[in-house]
Design a protein around this nucleic acid. Structure first.
Lengths: 213, 213
DNA sequence: ATTAAGATACCGACTAGTTGGTATGTTGTC
DNA sequence: GACAACATACCAACTAGTCGGTATCTTAAT
């Protein structure tokens, strides 16, 4: 769609999408005005409505954008290089912990925030959030399925379902962290998630947590 | 604060609080207007601002109201009568599953929805949500602490932390259900939570799930 | 190489409708 | 008649979206 070589300077569209991720996670979707987004992106309203039909259309685009941004973050993470699938699964959870840094709006989930507000009012936004969350869950489930096949093929849980649960637990971790205004609350929750996932492989002598860079 | 005997007919204040629980869970907090709330409650704007200083003040009151409503729901549930603390803990999780019925806005968490939007913009709302979530988590932690003392006093997890995690997992379950627009996604997540909690007591031969009325 | 012509990207003043909140009644009860 | 509990009318600020306009980039014929 757009040549990415030579860094042509960020377009208003890109700036608006990035601004949306930041501002919406801070103020919520309804609480974010189009003017807020334009100001944060450093563009005008004309630019906004040149690139997006409506505020809701931007939300859909931003959710899809979030999917690609996060996909590349996880694709490039160190734990992906581990050869053992269970190492990758636990490495994923540890990586999620490592991502909990800085202020809350910097590490919480854009689509998780968005879907809370839009699930009932806009079907297209909800669908975009579903793609993002369940697409990511499916990636986690791939490693889970491999690990299950290798270590406990007869276990009575499905990789898909556990993959979704990892996402739920992490989303919930963000909510309690917001309620307490303390990122450490999220970390403790993700610790429990890790313990649960490790416990799904009772035959394995669990290695220690892999430190993330 | 208010005498509850003899059912004197619902005041505008009560109607507004109940309307807030319903409407905010459907449309989100910023997406809900004062007029929406007045219409849903069947009262006028004058009544609204007679009882509440501002929309934000109503949010705080509604969060505290949510705390009392939910506290009485759980206090009156059958699982509370079980004598064994671990039975009560697992009965709690099963009860949470049983509450997942009807449309999404009917069983999702008011304060979970609210804090997502208000954690950064209004400290009093956030604090009210913290009281609600962590107060409830502490109730769950009471039974967890008793169960731990009875069955595995030397286990390396704290009842408080697990109590908070139960809330996180349930909040996350609601988010994935909203994303998928399917309550069953929440049920599957709560199943995983149950498996995790049960697994914290490895010495116990786990009984089957208690059916809820 | 120049130029004409169209397309794309962007600007910012403007508008119609909405929003939280206010000012001023009215009603019933002690 | 004083006070609480509402109701009605209204407003100033804000909000999503529009619209006429300009700058720059693409294409292709000369």
């Amino acid at each position: 769609m757009k040549k990415s070589a030579s860094i042509p300077k960020p377009s208003a569209k890109d700036k608006l999408l990035n601004a949306a991720l930041r501002v919406v996670r801070t103020k919520g979707y309804s609480g974010t005005t189009v003017d807020d987004l334009c100001a944060a992106a450093g563009v005008t309203k004309g630019a906004f409505f040149h690139h997006f039909e409506s505020k809701d259309a931007l939300a859909v685009a931003a959710a899809d954008y979030w999917s690609t941004v996060t996909a590349s973050v996880f694709a490039g993470a160190d734990y992906r290089k581990l050869s053992d699938p269970l190492d990758r699964v636990l490495g994923y959870v540890d990586f999620r912990k490592a991502l909990v840094r800085g202020q809350l709006p910097e590490f919480t989930c854009f689509v998780g925030t968005l879907v809370q507000e839009a699930f009932d009012s806009n079907a297209e936004i909800r669908a975009a959030c579903e793609r993002s969350i369940f697409g990511h869950a499916a990636e986690v489930a791939k490693d889970l399925a491999e690990a299950k096949k290798k270590y406990c093929p007869r276990a009575d849980w499905s990789a898909e379902s556990v993959g979704v649960f990892t996402q739920a637990a992490i989303q919930g971790a963000f909510i309690v962290a917001k309620a307490k205004d303390d990122p450490r609350a999220a970390l403790e929750c993700i610790e429990h998630l890790r313990r649960y996932v490790a416990g799904l492989f009772p035959s394995v002598n669990h290695r220690r947590e892999v430190k993330q860079s």
